[in-house]
């Protein structure tokens, strides 16, 4: 690993900037993501910031099943991120497609859609409908430890 890569990884682990992508969620996971920013959980104290652009992001927070309309957009957003970039599948829908597995608008699980672009993508799964904010913090902390 080059020095530059080490610096990048240090920066990512020190303060992961997160870009939130809704690929067809019911908004419940998104509301729980907002909870993370409220004073009760306040992930900014842990260095996690919501980024305004995928180009600034160290992690994509993907909620919802990947719909037919969202699929090319999710892939494009992943291409635009600076690598290394974590992909966090947040909630039952993003992890497994859940009850929408046979739905007509379903275009593939989030992890497969991402792996089409980058077979070595680092993907982590936080199940739940919606996951608790504690679970999200624990999941991201665990993923950062393993990097």
């Amino acid at each position: 690993m080059s020095v530059l890569d080490k610096v990048k990884l240090w920066g990512l682990k020190k303060s992961p900037w997160v870009y939130h992508v809704n690929t067809g969620a019911c908004n419940n996971c998104d509301i729980e993501v907002l909870e993370l920013l409220t004073p009760r959980f306040d992930v900014e104290r842990l260095g996690v910031l919501l980024a305004c652009s995928p180009r600034h992001a160290d992690a994509l927070l993907v909620t919802g099943i990947c719909t037919r309309q969202a699929r090319p957009r999710l892939q494009e957003i992943y291409r635009q991120t600076a690598k290394p970039c974590l992909v966090v599948c947040l909630g039952a829908c993003a992890c497994t497609a859940g009850i929408f597995h046979d739905a007509w608008h379903f275009a593939g699980p989030v992890d497969e859609v991402i792996r089409e672009v980058d077979p070595d993508a680092k993907i982590i799964y936080i199940p739940g409908c919606p996951p608790k904010p504690e679970a999200m913090i624990a999941g991201i902390a665990k993923a950062l430890q393993d990097l």
């Binding site: 037919r68 046979d102 739905a103 007509w104």
Partner: peptide, 20 residues
């Protein structure tokens, strides 16, 4: 519906089979 959805296919018709 998605932009690339084919014309004349209606997902909530009874004769529509989900093959996706």
């Amino acid at each position: 519906l998605a932009d690339d959805w084919p014309d004349g296919v209606y997902p909530l018709r009874r004769d529509k089979k989900n093959d996706a």
